[in-house]
Nucleic acid binder design. Structure first.
Lengths: 195, 195
DNA sequence: CAAGATTGATGCCTCAATCTTG
DNA sequence: CAAGATTGAGGCATCAATCTTG
């Protein structure tokens, strides 16, 4: 019965097949890439949560600490930098820094060059935590890619980059890089950024 | 022109380069795949939010309604089915169904075959909403993949499936497929599901 | 006014019970 | 006891408004 020839294997294959049956006039083939990306990201996030919980950390904590760790040798960034780097809201970052400071992982101090600004510095405590978490994470990630050959991993990374480059290149504007783009009523917005 | 050095282009290239500088002893190459997946998923989620907001819908609403829409011809599923299909918590699904029922998109009624169970049925209201949202989403997704040739899209989908199959195949057990154990010592776990 | 950061309100998700039924 | 669904508590994110400084 279920002896399909290699083509119908994961959940997305079944989803796309169902859409083609229900809405034959709609081309849902982009799902074969993007729904898989979403779904895989959710699985990955669950793994990250499990791995980090062994160290008493949450994924968002590692995200922030890792950003600071990589900013060596100063080990400090502004909240705005952190928000942009982690693709999160500015208000979210304020809250995150509060909690990380409470745990002694980072400390805040006023930016000497700009009185509006703040600098967030990584404490030794956070330094050790993030390095341990990262090592654990790499073991987990390595396992997740076990089904791929080295060449396939390289190829997969390159293909994903082709899509990401569009976002990260024009990524400077903190506003959503591309507007809602003609859903039903283009309400006089979105000057059509050149893709 | 852009033929030779297209190696350092997206954010993940810079991240990996920084880690190799800071922690040369740690192999972070899995990030070239998995960090890109995560990051792309976040970008994608933002787009989805923007697209659906034009229809007055949230991404999680479309997720649930789409699952019901594809369950034709009955157009009904149990909360547990929906939770599993959308990779979300059982409690989350209860809350979602509450809110969708308030909006008249779905309705709940007791399972005639199992008095513990509940059936969730798609209302005409939700039927129309999800079909419109899906059409808008496909336009958005198509644009996001514009940088790829058809062959590249196919290839990318296949490579992602190789990873997903491992999750979706053994996905039956509701417990996290792999325990939070072994942060440092790969002792005896990971039964290596035979692809 | 614009940029940077913060605050409070609101909404959604996760987790640990709890209740009912098989 | 196990499965299915629900509840309430707590945590985190998002949004709009605010305050300060360039």
């Amino acid at each position: 019965m279920t002896e399909d020839n290699l083509t119908h294997n994961d959940e997305i294959d079944r989803v796309v097949e169902a859409w083609q049956r229900e809405l034959p006039q709609l081309d849902v083939s982009p799902m074969l890439v993007l729904s898989r990306v979403s779904r895989l990201a959710r699985h990955f996030e669950r793994r990250r949560r499990a791995v980090f919980s062994a160290d008493g950390l949450a994924p968002w904590e590692v995200d922030v600490l890792a950003e600071l760790r990589r900013s060596a040798p100063s080990y400090e960034l502004s909240p705005g930098d952190l928000a942009h780097a982690t693709l999160s809201d500015s208000a979210t970052m304020t809250s995150r820094i509060d909690r990380l400071a409470d745990k002694g992982f980072v400390e805040r101090y006023p930016d000497p060059d700009d009185r509006r600004g703040v600098r967030v510095r990584l404490c030794p405590n956070g330094f050790r935590a993030v390095e341990r978490a990262l090592a654990d994470l790499m073991i987990c990630e390595y396992e997740m890619l076990a089904a791929l050959t080295p060449d396939q991993r390289t190829e997969l990374g390159q293909l994903l980059r082709l899509i990401l480059v569009v976002f990260d290149a024009q990524g400077r504007p903190k506003s959503p890089p591309i507007g809602p783009k003609l859903p039903a009523t283009p309400s006089s917005v979105t000057p059509t950024p050149g893709i």
